[in-house]
Amino acid sequence: MILLDFGYERAATLQQAAAWLARLGDGAHVLAGGTDLLPSLRAELVSPGVLVGLSGIEPEPPRLTADGSIRIDALTRLSSLAHAGLVREKLPMLADSALAVGSNQIREMATLGGNLCQETRCLYLNQRHDYQFAAPCFKRGGDCCHPFPRNDRQTCWSVHMSDIAPALIALGAELEILGGAGMRRIGAAELYTGSGLQPLSLGRAELVRAVIVPPPPPRSGWGFHKSTVRGGLEFGMAVIAVSLQLAEDGASCCGARIAVGAVRERPLRLESAERALVGARLDDERLARVAPDAAKALNPLPHHGFTRRHLLDNVAVYLRRALAQAAERARTGRA
C-alpha cells in the first residue's frame, strides 16, 4: 500500500519541472514512468511532499545529429528504446540492454532517464520497515547497516542495478543535464558518485534530459550479458557491457571499453582490463587471462544472496564470453 499523503504537479515541459524542483526543494521528487519510484514510495524509502509528474511531456524520437551521434530523449520508454529502428540498427547493444530490463509491462512504463537514476538496492533497503528491521539503516537516516553489521563507516553498500548504464558507459555515451543553471554535459559514468547514500551526482533541481551516443567506430564490436537466476523479471546479479575496436590489421585491439553494473554502488569501468587489451591480439588465451583479473579488480559487493566468490566466478566467465563475442563481431562486422 502507498500512503497517498503527498501533492502532485504535472509538468508541461522539462524546464517547468526543473523550476518546480528548484522551488520545492528536497521534498519534491520527479515521477516519470514510476516503475522505480512507486516501489520506493511503498517501501517508504522516499516520502515526498510533492511529486512532479513528467507524463505530460512527449519525448522526442531518437535522432541522428549532425556529427553522427544519436540523441535519445531521457523520457523515452524502454520498450520504444528497445524497438526503435535507429537504435536497433546503430546501437544494438543499447537496444539489448533496454530489453533486458524487467518485463514487457515494466518496459512499457519505465523511461531511459528513470532507469539511469534508479535507487540503489539491497535486500534490506528496498522494503517496508514497519515491523521488519525497525531500526533504520544509514541510508534511511539511521545508525546501522543491516547487511554488513560491521560497516561502521556511515556509508551504504547497496548496489546500482541499472542494465542500461553499463551499456552506455561502454558505448562512450554522454548525458545532457538540465538544471537551474542551464545545460551541462557529462560522461555517462560521471552520473554516479560511487556512494550508496547519494548515488547520483545530480544537483537538487537537475534532470537528465537526453543521452547522446557517439557512432560506434569502424571495426568495432560489442558484447552484453546480464547474469540472472531465472532469465527475466529480475535485476541482474551482474551486468556486463563491452565495446572493442580492432586496428586496421583486423587482429589487434586498438580500443576497449568495459563496464560492469550491479556489483557496486555504481556501474564500474574496468580500465585496467581495457589497458591489458589495447595493443594486444584478441585471442582466446588473452581473453581467458584478462577476464578473471578484471573480475577480481571489481571487488564486488556480495548482494541479494550472491556471495563475493560466486560473483567473481560468474563475471570472469561472462566477461570472457562477452569479450570474445565483441571481438568476433568486430572481426566479422556483423551486429
Binding site: L123, Y124, Q127, Q132, R230, L233, E234, H304, G305
Partner: peptide, 13 residues
C-alpha cells in the same frame, strides 16, 4: 524476511 516480494523471491516464469 529479506526478500518479501516477487522480485527477489524468484518463482519460475
Amino acid at each position: 524476511t529479506l526478500n518479501p516480494n516477487w522480485l527477489d523471491y524468484r518463482m519460475p516464469t
